[in-house]
């Protein structure tokens, strides 16, 4: 029951009624200052914008509500999370303001209240409160030409494919958002490639949360392995030292496990490891790299 938004680029007339509806719904103020905002019209006070593209095309830009959102996976405190019915929402109560979500988002959607001393992240939340009341988002409701519509993701996918099939010359044969970054809840059909919606301008097929998942899963084993490795190395070194001391004579008086003598000067016995410095350091550093 994932809800979704489908935008048909060929139908959009660029009137920005959706932007207006959004601004009114969330009482957003004036445009943010130019110095913090870049090009695409999105800002802490604009959750959606209409990009003008060559060839008389208008492309609405908004949060894509990824099925596997990079922002939610990046957030250290879970201030961003995806609701089961689709919207990726934000909880300022939890937020630290670290802006890792902004760095992680493949589309560069989350925006920051740069001007505020108490800043938060602002982005489209697919009007999740309206969805709870059984209404549709403000933007889709406002569209005068039904270029952007709301519905179940599966229905919209079928609708999109049907439109492409009915008019194959008019569209690229691809539903944008069906597969990219693991699928998004905001879908597009368009006569041109929409790669410019990605930050960096290149289409991304990786599922972003999966990229850090491998490294994160390695954390507990590496933690324990490092402990075991260090413990083992200590044991080996300790034994070797003891054996050497035994060989040399009964002047070793240190109990095992208490290597440092409270800052006291150690016996000169340590010097009996010619060339040991480099050799002994390397295995420790190499260990985790292998």
């Amino acid at each position: 029951m994932t809800k979704a938004i489908l935008t048909d680029v060929t139908r959009c007339i660029g009137c920005e009624s959706c932007v207006k509806a959004c601004v009114e719904e969330y009482h957003l103020g004036e445009y943010e200052k130019f110095r913090w905002v870049r090009g695409d019209g999105l800002s802490a006070s604009r959750f959606c914008s209409v990009l003008r593209r060559p060839g008389r095309l208008y492309v609405r830009k908004q949060c894509r509500h990824c099925i596997e959102p990079a922002c939610a996976s990046a957030c250290p405190v879970g201030a961003l999370h995806r609701l089961p019915n689709g919207p990726v929402v934000y909880d300022k109560e939890k937020c630290l303001g670290c802006r890792y979500c902004m760095m992680a988002c493949p589309y560069g959607i989350p925006r920051y209240e740069w001007e505020s001393p108490v800043p938060g992240i602002r982005k489209c939340i697919m009007c999740y409160k309206r969805l709870e009341q059984g209404r549709q988002p403000a933007c889709t409701e406002a569209c005068p030409v039904k270029a952007t519509i709301f519905g179940d993701r599966n229905d919209l996918l079928n609708e999109a494919k049907a439109r492409i099939k009915a008019n194959p010359g008019k569209y690229k044969h691809k539903v944008f958002g069906e597969k990219e970054v693991g699928g998004t809840s905001v879908l597009y059909i368009s006569p041109v490639d929409l790669n410019f919606l990605f930050l960096g301008g290149e289409s991304r097929t990786e599922v972003f949360p999966k990229l850090t998942e491998a490294a994160m899963h390695a954390v507990p084993p590496v933690f324990l392995a490092m402990g075991a490795l260090m413990g083992g190395l200590w044991w080996v070194c300790e034994r070797r030292e003891k054996n050497m001391a035994k060989k040399r004579g009964p002047d070793d008086h240190r109990p095992p496990g208490n290597g440092q003598g409270g800052g006291a000067v150690d016996t000169e016995g340590d010097q009996a490891q010619p060339g040991g410095t480099a050799n002994q350091e390397t295995p420790g550093e190499e260990g985790p790299g292998k």
Partner: peptide
């Protein structure tokens, strides 16, 4: 809010 990291967990995040 920096202490939130102690109470709100998201173990999948490298920053966490």
């Amino acid at each position: 809010n920096i202490w939130h990291m102690i109470v709100y967990w998201n173990p999948g995040s490298p920053l966490f």
